[in-house]
Design a protein around this nucleic acid. Structure first.
Lengths: 198, 198
DNA sequence: CCCGTTTCTTAAACTATATTAAGGCCATTT
DNA sequence: AAATGGCCTTAATATAGTTTAAGAAACGGG
C-alpha cells in the first residue's frame, strides 16, 4: 500500500526541477519515503545518535546546531520549505552525529532512510546526478558563508543574511540569527539599532 | 593519440578509491583530460573569468581566494596532492567567478574542461556517483569549518588547523594561514607566541 | 485571560582582534 | 656587496565583539 499521493507530491515536484522522472521511478521513490508531522521544538536528530534520514521539508523550518563545552548552541544551518536537512557526514559514515536538528516551527516533512536512499541510488541512477547537483549548490552556499565569516564584520554579515534569506529573517527569532552569525544576541541588538539609525 | 599513461595514472587511481572503473571507462576518461605543469604564483583562475576546469592536483599546492574592496586577499581553501579545486558555482553557472586560484608551489595538475566533464557524466554514470561523494565529503569539511568560525576563538581555530592539516601547516607561510583563519598575520604571530609559552 | 517563558533591548566593564608602525631575517636579484 | 622583496615578529593604540545584569515587551500554554 502506497502512502497518500498528494502528501508526497512536493518531493516529486522537487526532483523534477532537476531532472524528469518516469512514472515507474515515482512509484519506486514513493514506496521508500515517509511523511511525518513534527511539532515545534521537536528534534529529528540528537547529538550522539546516527543520522538515519535525509529529511525534505514540505512545510515549516528547522535549525541544525552544535553545542559547545559551555552549553552554548551554534546554528550551522537553517532549512525551510523545499530544502533538505541532514548531517551528511554521520548519515554516510554511520558514526554518531555531533549535531542536533530541531523544528523551529510546526512542520511537515518527508524522510528517506539510509538503506532506502542507497536502494534508490542503485535503481534510479539519475538520483545520483540529482543529489550531486543538490549538494553542489549547498556547497557553493556554504563557501560564500565561509568567505563572509573570514572577511566581513558582524554588521555586514547580518545585512547580507537579511538580503539572502529575507523569509527566514522574518520567521526566526533574533537569538537564532545571532547564533547563526556567530555573535551574541546583545551585539545583534546593537547592530540593529545602529542600522535603524541610518 | 592518448596522452602518456603514467602521468594520468594518479587521477585513475583517485577514482578507483570511490568506485572500480573498467578499461573502456579509463580510456574514455583519459581521452578527455589534460596534464599541465604550473609554476609557483601562476594562476589557473582569475576573478571575472568563468571557471572552465575542474582541476585535480597531482603534485603541489594551490590556494583559492577572494579579494575584498580594500584589496585584501581572503583564502577560502587550500588544496594539495590527490585533491580537487574549482569554483564549482562559476563552473556550472558559466558566470564569471569572484575568485582566484593560484599555485603556492610549483605544481602538476590534471584538468577536465566543462564540456568534457558533462560528456563523461553522460557516458559514465558512475562518475555522477563518484563526484557526488567527493562533493559530499568537501561539504562536511566546510560545514565543520563554519562551525569553528562561529563558535571558536582564533587560537582554537589555529590549533585545530594544525591538527587537521599538519602537512599544509608546514608547507604554507603563516601569512596564508592567517588569511585562511580570518585573522591578521600580526595576530597569528601573537597566538603562536602565546602557544609556545605553554 | 493570566502567568511564566522567551525574546529584545540597554549599558558598563571587559576581552579578543585589528591597525599602524617599525625592525629584523632570509633568500634572490643586480 | 648592496639592494629588493617576502616573511615574521613586537608593541602601542584603536575597534569589534563579549559578558553581565537588568528591565520591558511579546508570546504560548494552560
Amino acid at each position: 500500500m502506497l502512502p497518500p499521493l498528494e502528501k508526497m507530491e512536493p518531493i516529486i515536484h522537487h526532483f523534477h526541477k532537476y531532472l524528469p522522472l518516469t512514472e515507474a521511478e515515482h512509484e519506486l521513490i514513493l514506496s521508500r519515503i515517509k511523511h511525518r508531522q513534527i511539532k515545534r521544538r521537536q528534534m529529528i536528530l540528537q547529538e550522539g545518535l546516527v543520522c538515519h534520514h535525509y529529511t525534505f521539508i514540505v512545510k515549516g523550518c528547522f535549525k541544525m546546531y552544535g553545542v559547545d563545552d559551555r552549553g552554548i548552541e551554534h546554528n550551522i544551518q537553517f532549512a525551510a520549505e523545499d530544502d533538505w536537512i541532514a548531517d551528511i557526514g554521520s548519515f554516510h559514515s554511520k558514526k554518531p552525529s555531533g549535531f542536533f536538528i530541531e523544528a523551529v516551527e510546526p512542520s511537515e516533512i518527508i524522510q528517506i532512510e539510509q538503506q532506502d536512499l542507497y536502494f534508490l541510488y542503485i535503481n534510479i541512477p539519475k538520483l545520483d546526478r540529482i543529489f550531486k547537483v543538490i549538494v553542489e549548490n549547498k556547497y557553493v552556499e556554504l563557501q560564500n558563508r565561509v568567505l563572509q565569516n573570514i572577511s566581513s564584520t558582524a554588521q555586514q554579515r547580518y545585512v547580507n543574511f537579511l538580503e539572502q534569506y529575507p523569509t527566514l529573517a522574518s520567521r526566526l527569532p533574533n537569538v537564532q540569527i545571532a547564533s547563526y552569525l556567530g555573535i551574541t544576541p546583545e551585539f545583534l541588538s546593537k547592530i540593529r539599532k545602529d542600522l535603524s539609525g541610518k
